[in-house]
Computed example of a mutant assay.
Amino acid sequence: MSRIILSIAVCFVLGVPIGADFPGDPKPCKYGESDCIVKLVNELISSKASQGDRALNLVKLDPLPVAKMNIKQGADSPVNIDLTFTDNNVYGISTMKIRKVKGFGKSIDKKHELLLNAATLTLAGPYKITGKVLILPISGSGESNMTLVNCDMIVSFTGKPVEKDGETYMEATNLKLSTKPERLYYLFSNLFNGDKALGDNMNTFLNDNWEAIFLEVQQSMQTAFAEIFQAIITNVFSKYPYAKFFEE
């Protein structure tokens, strides 16, 4: 679930002022002023992630609902699974801290990038799984919890100018999400039709081999979460023309 993250996340609502009257208030950051944008976004995450902000088209991000997500690995992978999460939540986005940003200059159609860290990110809720993990078969449905600890993340996307009512807005395209957790914990309830002994053994196996499993499913999970975060960013920047977010 490694690229849980998300969140992905990541409230990557770059460069958005916190004033209630935005965009009428003075803009706190100039185009591409990375240190200012880092400070501003961190303030926004800590103050807005838990409730959202209609003025900014910012949805509630902690917890962040995930209606459905499917992770499917092919038979050529040591982790050959079909794993579906339904009506889950991502917890922990409010713990994210932006370390560095690149881009967000005057030209929209450039690569924009955020480097950040999350103390913990958790995906929790109903799951269903079938397949094989390394050498062991796995099956079950119930409640799951996957938690990333001290996770470094990189979010990058290309800005796409969109003309609307004579103004230019930014749409996030080709968003990529990469994650590097210090640790990942798994817990799947009701594995093997509720066989406690088999289920406990499998959860122990998953946690003992978390890094190898993570590396196998990392790409497919990051792709799934990237779609969520791309929608969040595009939604925020669709509220006002791009030029309204920055000072000249």
Results as ranks from 00 to 15, higher is better:
152 D>F: 07
209 N>D: 03
220 S>Y: 01
106 K>Q: 13
245 F>E: 00
88 N>V: 14
149 V>F: 14
86 T>I: 13
153 M>H: 00
48 K>H: 09
10 V>N: 09
100 K>S: 08
74 G>A: 03
28 P>S: 06
153 M>L: 14
25 D>V: 15
109 D>P: 11
33 E>M: 02
79 V>N: 03
203 N>Q: 06
68 K>Y: 01
202 M>Q: 01
20 A>D: 15
65 P>T: 03
48 K>C: 11
197 A>K: 15
130 T>A: 02
10 V>W: 05
200 D>V: 08
165 D>A: 14
233 I>N: 09
34 S>H: 13
34 S>E: 15
223 T>I: 04
160 K>T: 10
238 S>T: 07
134 L>F: 02
81 I>P: 00
188 F>W: 03
77 S>H: 03
173 T>I: 07
66 V>R: 00
247 E>A: 15
220 S>N: 12
217 V>N: 01
177 L>I: 13
56 L>M: 08
168 T>R: 02
155 V>H: 05
1 M>E: 08
52 G>I: 12
150 N>T: 07
5 I>G: 14
231 A>G: 12
222 Q>V: 02
53 D>K: 07
160 K>E: 14
133 V>F: 03
177 L>K: 00
235 N>G: 05
43 E>G: 15
216 E>Y: 02
15 G>Y: 07
236 V>F: 06
137 P>C: 03
204 T>E: 00
226 A>T: 08
115 L>P: 02
92 G>P: 00
184 L>T: 13
242 Y>W: 00
202 M>R: 04
49 A>H: 09
114 L>C: 12
27 K>T: 08
38 V>N: 05
193 N>L: 03
120 T>D: 04
109 D>R: 06
80 N>K: 04
42 N>I: 10
8 I>V: 13
98 I>W: 00
203 N>R: 04
51 Q>H: 15
193 N>Y: 03
132 K>F: 04
132 K>L: 01
176 K>I: 06
80 N>E: 06
163 E>G: 11
53 D>C: 09
38 V>W: 05
29 C>N: 10
9 A>L: 12
123 L>T: 07
200 D>R: 05
243 A>T: 14
168 T>D: 00
198 L>P: 06
104 F>W: 06
153 M>N: 02
26 P>M: 05
169 Y>F: 14
226 A>N: 06
123 L>A: 08
106 K>V: 08
233 I>M: 01
189 S>R: 11
120 T>A: 01
193 N>M: 07
13 V>P: 13
99 R>K: 13
177 L>T: 13
218 Q>M: 05
148 L>Y: 01
105 G>K: 08
206 L>C: 09
86 T>R: 10
138 I>A: 01
103 G>N: 06
220 S>M: 04
220 S>A: 15
180 K>S: 12
233 I>Y: 09
141 S>G: 11
165 D>G: 15
100 K>C: 08
29 C>T: 10
135 I>P: 10
233 I>T: 15
73 Q>R: 07
15 G>T: 12
202 M>S: 07
123 L>Q: 01
51 Q>A: 07
116 L>G: 15
173 T>P: 09
